[in-house]
Design a protein around this nucleic acid. Sequence first.
DNA 1: CGACCATTCGAACGTTCGTTCGGTAAGGAA
DNA 2: TTCCTTACCGAACGAACGTTCGAATGGTCG
Lengths: 202, 202
Amino acid sequence: MVDPLTFDSRLARILTVAAKVFAGKGFHPTTMRALSRETEMSLAGIYHYVSGKNELLYLIQQRCFSAVLAGAERALADGHGPADRLERFIRHHVGFFASHMSEMKVLAHEADSLDGVRLADINGLKRRYVDLLRTLVADLDDNSPKGDPQVAAYALFGMMNWIYTWYHPDGPISPDALADRFAQLFLSGVIAPSPSTAPQGD
Amino acid sequence: MVDPLTFDSRLARILTVAAKVFAGKGFHPTTMRALSRETEMSLAGIYHYVSGKNELLYLIQQRCFSAVLAGAERALADGHGPADRLERFIRHHVGFFASHMSEMKVLAHEADSLDGVRLADINGLKRRYVDLLRTLVADLDDNSPKGDPQVAAYALFGMMNWIYTWYHPDGPISPDALADRFAQLFLSGVIAPSPSTAPQGD
DNA sequence: CGACCATTCGAACGTTCGTTCGGTAAGGAA
DNA sequence: TTCCTTACCGAACGAACGTTCGAATGGTCG
């Protein structure tokens, strides 16, 4: 009888568990023995699926980054106007973050834990992702270069990525509500007239 | 002749060097042997000043956090009005960050690398600092509880603290300019009417 | 002088780490 | 049956780690 679980599905399970452990106590303090305990697999058995601890981190980051990037491009596809597209990006990023907390925390917090070509590969994805947001920000006001869109893009990324230090998706604030608040904050600021007093222009 | 360097000043030098190394390659990957190389002191010699690697991290975080906290309270002392006080906080935080990059990166990035009473102590300082900013944000609009000031405060912290991943104080953007941009972004958003029609107010 | 203390160090100790080695068990193909 | 491949594991290896030990130095004080 053939094993009903494929190699890939079992690798994926290992990556999911590893992402949780990495997110919980950090990449470097996590030992392969801890992963073998958590995956209920022998220490040596893990090496049948990955070449080592670094590849584990690389695969987590590579798959996660590819997924956010593809998801963002999909979410932007049918956006109408610069502001709408930016809002869609924010909503997708926050939503993806909230539903893939461990992987995204590993992506954000262990960005420099790889080296060599693996780091270069992940940084390539990062550059594409940052460029995407910077373009969206720049498109907001084409003719008034008052502020560096790159700075604004990084500010927005900071706002969103920092949530791994304080936000709990199961708490009182839903990911959607958080995304809405972030979009409002970034577009209009804190002291923006709340929509309740009805400042809507259209 | 008495050594012109005091115990405290030499400890401070060790902490400065250690903060640089921790910021460069992370707390856990940094070895005591690397610190002994960087401080030009023997491996065992370091243990004359600190009890171990964890205390090194603790002292860096404790001193740095106490300094930002005290500095912020000083900066706020003679502020006029909620918006002005918030702007002063931002300016101080970004300015302090830029002039103490290594320590602040260690503070932000190694927030969970301590444990026990040391972690609890640092978290106590963090709570005071976060509470301070949340109060400033809440004071902006007393009577319209449209948005959770805690969320806005965390968003602002994310915006500011994330700079350790991309900002270089010696680059084209001065810390003052960055703080101005952040204040403008947080208060009015990206699409705020720029003061470009009359940028110079005085 | 001798006793003391602060400072520094080379060398080692014990532990833990990532990884590898050599093997077992089982299913499919011949 | 035999042979090959996949999946998995217990045990060990070598390296690196944080920390400690015992001693040396040099200045101060009595």
